[in-house]
Amino acid sequence: MKVIPALKITKVITDLCVQANLFLRKDVLAAIQKAYRLEKSQRAKRILAAVIENARVAKKEKLAICQDTGMPIVFLEIGQDVRITGSLKDAVNRGVELGYKKASLRNSIIREPLARGKSGLSPAVTHIDIVKGNKIKITVLPKGFGCENKSQLKMFNPTAKLEEIKKFIIDAVKAAGPDACPPYVVGVGIGGTADYACLLAKKALLRKLGPARSGMERELLRRINALNIGPMGLGGKATCIGVHIETFPTHIAGLPVAVNISCHALRSATAII
């Protein structure tokens, strides 16, 4: 049994919050640079150049990439041979608060969703997986709400045609249109239950951007980029820089499909302790 003090978790999460919000993921930056090279429209090129410059300024001057520093989402993969001393929940939220404070990020979290009231830095939304081993893998994903507001879930019939599902995903991007800061990364969760499909769609955003993993991902990327939404929705080839699909077994009576869109400022950071 390996003992990990809660304090250690706090420290790591503090650092991950700062890293994720200030330094754009290398794979995301590379994808935007590639989109810039492929873009023909001069306006779209100018916008993508601003996005690239923004990442440079954020890094150099230690400023948040985007003022919407998101709802912090913390993914924990905890090895079953780890014993945590102290309160894990408190450790996570304390880490988020310290990290957000350290980097002067935004107080975007309100305690009461209906009454609203004064905003603060925490709590985070936390997802925990128990895995084999004696380590803890921690990922922080600050999710801005311009794009989170465009999330969609549909419970398809198990006999639904594949094309209906593809259309649902493409339509979710169409509905987001110019509003959620394209070019997007589109996370898709298929299977499980309603809640689990949503979680899969969110987790799909954590995957490193790169070549499509399936024909369906490739086809969706192509069809979404043919929508001509483009950077800031002002037209262009770069509507989407990646479609990531995650699947899970589901029930004979259903076929949940969730879409979670990320803006071009897809931010996350991971550490293993």
Binding site: N54, A64, I65
Partner: peptide, 8 residues
């Protein structure tokens, strides 16, 4: 304004 470019 340039969207998602808050630092800039």
């Amino acid at each position: 304004a340039y969207a998602g470019c808050g630092a800039l």
